[in-house]
Amino acid sequence: MTIPFSPVLPGSASPGAAPPATPRNLPQKGGEPNPSAAAIAAKFPALFVRSEVIWGDTNVYVHPHGVTEVVRWLHDDPAERYDYLSDVTAVEFRDFEQPLEVVWHLRSLPYRRFLRLKASLDKREPLVVDSVWPIYKGADWLERECYDMFGITFTGHPDLRRILMWETYREGYPLRKDFPLRGRFSRAEQLRQALSITTEGRYSMEELSVAQAFEDLPEDMRRRLAGGERTGE
C-alpha cells in the first residue's frame, strides 16, 4: 500500500497572483501594505494599535495582552492562513524611555505573505506576554531564547528555562542594553562560578528524577523538586 502523495505548494491559495520577484528600489516608508494589516484592524479594533510599511514589510502593532488571540485568528482564518512562524525575538532600544518590543515574524505559505507582528512592553513593568506555543510548536526554543536573552516571560510556555546560557547563570539577561558587553561579574568571579558547578548542576532536576535516580538525590533536592523547581545546582 502506498500513501497517496501530494506536495504542499506555497502560493496555492492565490493561484492568479503574479509570480514572486526580487524586490527592487523599495521605498523606506509607504508602499503596498499587507492586506492582513487592514483585516486585523477591522477584526480587532480594541487590540490593534497601528501599522506601518517599512522597506516593503508590514509591521502591525498590537496590545501585548491580545497577541494570542490575534495570532490564533491569523493562523486559523481561511483568508489569512499564517501557518508558519519564522521567528520570535525582541528589540530593546538604546533610549531607555522607548518600550521594549517583542517581534513575531509570521509567514503565510498558502498566500505567500509575510507579516511582522509587534507588541510593546513598558520596561518599568514586568515583561510578560502570552506564549504562541499552543499555536506553533516551533515557538518553543525561540521563546526560550527570548526569555534567556531578554528576560521576557511567556505565559503558557510549557518549559520556560534558559537555553543558551546555563541554568545557574546569575548575571542577568545578556541582550539587554544595561548588560555590559563583557558581562556583569569580574573574570575571577566568572571563573570561580564556572569551576564551582557540580556534576548535578549539569542536569536539570527533572532529568535527575528519572528512574531510580530520584531515590539517590539529597534530601533538600528532593524537596525542591517536589515543590516544582526545575533547576539543578
Binding site: 502523495f5 514572486p20 526580487t22 505559505l109
Partner: peptide, 17 residues
C-alpha cells in the same frame, strides 16, 4: 516532508526567479 517551500522560489532575492 512534502512542502515545496523554498525561499529562492517563494520570496526571491538576487534574481533567483
Amino acid at each position: 516532508s512534502g512542502v515545496a517551500y523554498d525561499v529562492r522560489k517563494d520570496f526571491p532575492y538576487l534574481d533567483y526567479e
